[in-house]
Design a binder for these strands. Structure first.
Lengths: 223, 223
DNA sequence: TAGATTGTTAATCGATTAACAATC
DNA sequence: TAGATTGTTAATCGATTAACAATC
């Protein structure tokens, strides 16, 4: 699928945002869009959009632009969201439950198949039709159901052990909300460390330095 | 505080992570650390750590390294987390409630002063000792309490109107969890668009391209 | 066709890494 | 003092932007 062998992480991280904007455009009945107009809506340069897309293929047409639906589908296919991987959530506290309820796993390449916790208060609770299982059953469950991704929503001190067990069980992807940083240096493991606290602190810095940052992100348009 | 007038966003985004690692080190009784050892723990280069810190000042000592507690305090002060800004959450659904319960606002420069929703089912509900208020009271509340930051956890279609009203009320910072992108081009407004769905889709891409990405993040160490 | 807009190469800009003199 | 490690300048690398020929 990829034209160039090595796609940079910066490009990859922009793909879901393209996908989102194109989905919105499609829902609003927009049939075609030029890189110039998309760039104005997204706050990017048209050049960057064309560069990004051409990492994967020539999806546009000179003099016309891009077909919204076709490009939306292409990016979905690049992201690989049609191939559904089984997912589990470990930690059924507030964050774990909120994610279970709010994230459209089905539209993002995943299907939620299990939720785990260690507290008797939540074990057995039904979340989105899934019953919370005792975390001691993790090994049994994973051997039977072979989940590919785990959402980590346990407290910091519990995280290293859970991650270690899951890696032994063959989990390849981690979506980590715990305060613990999953290292990137395991071979064959991919990780998204979310760290909401870091995001809030970044906002704190920006709030404190508002004047220095004023009109920070330039809304460049071509020509 | 800043030595150089313009600190890049890449540097700023690494600060909370430094702060977190230094806090952990401090709690583990580590008194001093060299950029080399910190780089090994964090998966960065020692050079980058020294460059980053020297944007703000010379906090180390040749031949010794950095005093963990002093550096931790310095970064906290750079982030500005001691000056507490009043914060509100708009949207008391799963995500809003999870954030209210889990995020240590007090340790991150903020104090939660109000939670809003439009649904009669949640209005009046107590979350962390705060009673959920009808969102129609937003104007009255904000004029009285002058919050500085708003956490946006409403559905996508409600977001544009809420953001518009909050900007009129003088809110300067947005921590946005809605599916709607708050544009960066308002003058004097700072925004963190979190977009958990984008993060999950990025992980989907990485999971699908695991082999190509294998051992992606190099753990460089000096010398 | 003429006008528009892509795909792609080249130029620029910024961020990361390397090197090393300064100094604790 | 000798060894270690910083702060800082220079070199490298990568990502973004600009330009334009190709072409629909």
């Amino acid at each position: 699928m990829a034209r160039h062998e090595k796609i940079s992480i910066s490009v990859i991280r922009r793909l879901p945002r393209y996908y989102r904007f194109l989905g919105d455009l499609s829902r609003n009945g927009v049939l075609r869009i030029s890189s110039k107009e998309l760039s104005a809506r997204m706050g990017l340069t048209a050049s960057q959009i064309r560069q990004d897309l051409n990492c994967f293929g020539g999806f546009g047409q000179q003099g016309y632009g891009y077909n919204v639906d076709a490009l939306h589908a292409e990016i979905g296919s690049i992201l690989g969201i049609s191939k559904i991987f089984p997912a589990i959530i470990v930690g059924a506290g507030n964050i774990g439950r909120a994610i279970a309820m709010n994230i459209g796993f089905e539209n993002m390449g995943f299907k939620l198949t299990g939720i785990f916790d260690s507290s008797p208060d939540v074990i057995g609770m039904e979340i989105r039709g899934i019953s919370v299982i005792d975390v001691s059953q993790l090994e049994t469950f994973c051997k039977a159901h072979k989940p590919k991704i785990a959402v980590i929503t346990v407290p910091q001190q519990a995280a290293p052990d859970i991650v270690d067990r899951l890696i032994k069980l063959g989990i390849e992807s981690f979506w980590n909300f715990s305060h613990f940083d999953i290292a990137f240096n395991y071979p064959g493991i991919v990780v998204e460390n979310v760290h909401l606290g870091d995001s809030l602190m970044t906002l704190c810095y920006m709030t404190n330095n508002l004047s220095a940052l004023a009109a920070h992100q330039p809304q460049k348009t071509e020509k």
